[in-house]
């Protein structure tokens, strides 16, 4: 299910992209965070976005699920244009899942309730069905025995895995990850990346903003490099690392791959 596709879909036989972003721009006061971004993602594709701080990576994915509202451009999900009305935003966000750098679990709810809250309240799932599903997801992220605990009782890596399960509980068609391991102790990064890698291998379409280059090399179908609000390069892992086309990218890779 992990096919690489052309950046711009021209042939009739190639399926419609899952996500198509065109002309996306975003300003904060006089600072331009995103410059006319075009991006498309195929169904089942795993895209990693990397780049220096302030390059607009987080802003880009936050624009995709409209946590930031873009100043211009449009977003199509599964062929449908995403509207600006509150109703449209809510529907969009139910189909797109997001995992945050700071996990952002609900501290007053147990792990199980964290995962079942949205399906029960938004999809009107009954308690038994929601909990059954939650436990399945917890098993997938290797946390089945922590269901009754509260976030404060879990380690960072565990909390993040719960956050992933929580997002998956809504059956999203696309998962967005905003630097999911940047706030974790080094020892816990791996357990979260393993979950993400498995998720991708099982066919989930995902866009991941991260600094974890090893992970990018192994788990990505394409890697994008952003700097100063623009996508400078978007290649397969082999081309990205072994044959960087842009000098800025080359510099970036040289700097971060020192260790």
């Amino acid at each position: 299910m992990n096919e690489t596709t052309e950046q711009i879909v021209t042939e009739q036989t190639t399926p419609q992209p899952l996500l198509n972003v065109t002309g996306l721009s975003k300003h904060f006061c006089d600072f331009t965070a995103l410059h006319n971004i075009d991006l498309s993602l195929a169904d089942g594709e795993r895209l990693i976005i990397c780049g220096p701080s302030g390059s607009g990576k987080s802003t880009l994915i936050r624009c995709i699920n409209q946590l930031e509202s873009p100043d211009s451009g449009q977003i199509e999900l599964q062929g449908q244009l995403v509207g600006k009305a509150p109703r449209d935003l809510v529907m969009l966000r139910r189909r797109v899942g997001m995992v945050f750098q700071q996990f952002n679990l609900f501290p007053h709810l147990s792990v199980l309730d964290n995962i079942t809250a949205a399906p029960r309240k938004l999809l009107n799932l009954d308690k038994a069905a929601a909990e059954h599903k939650a436990l399945e997801l917890l098993a997938r992220v290797q946390l089945i025995d922590q269901s009754a605990k509260f976030p404060a009782q879990l380690s960072g890596g565990q909390q993040q895995r719960v956050a992933i399960a929580r997002a998956l509980a809504m059956d999203p068609v696309l998962m967005l990850f905003d630097e999911p391991t940047s706030a974790l102790d080094p020892e816990m990064i791996r357990e979260v990346l393993d979950v993400m890698r498995e998720l991708g291998e099982q066919g989930m379409s995902m866009i991941v903003v991260t600094h974890e280059m090893q992970f990018a090399r192994q788990a990505a179908d394409r890697i994008a490099f952003m700097d100063q609000g623009q996508i400078l390069a978007i290649e397969t892992p082999e081309d990205f690392f072994d044959n960087p086309s842009q000098p800025r990218l080359k510099r970036f890779l040289d700097n971060i791959l020192q260790h």
């Binding site: 699920n65 809510v90 609900f106 309240k121 997002a167």
Partner: peptide, 21 residues
């Protein structure tokens, strides 16, 4: 901000985010 954004990202409408969570 974090709590609010997590709820919004899951698809909670704004008013329900505030009221229920």
């Amino acid at each position: 901000r974090g709590q609010r954004e997590a709820a919004l990202a899951l698809g909670f409408p704004v008013w329900r985010t505030y009221l229920e969570l």
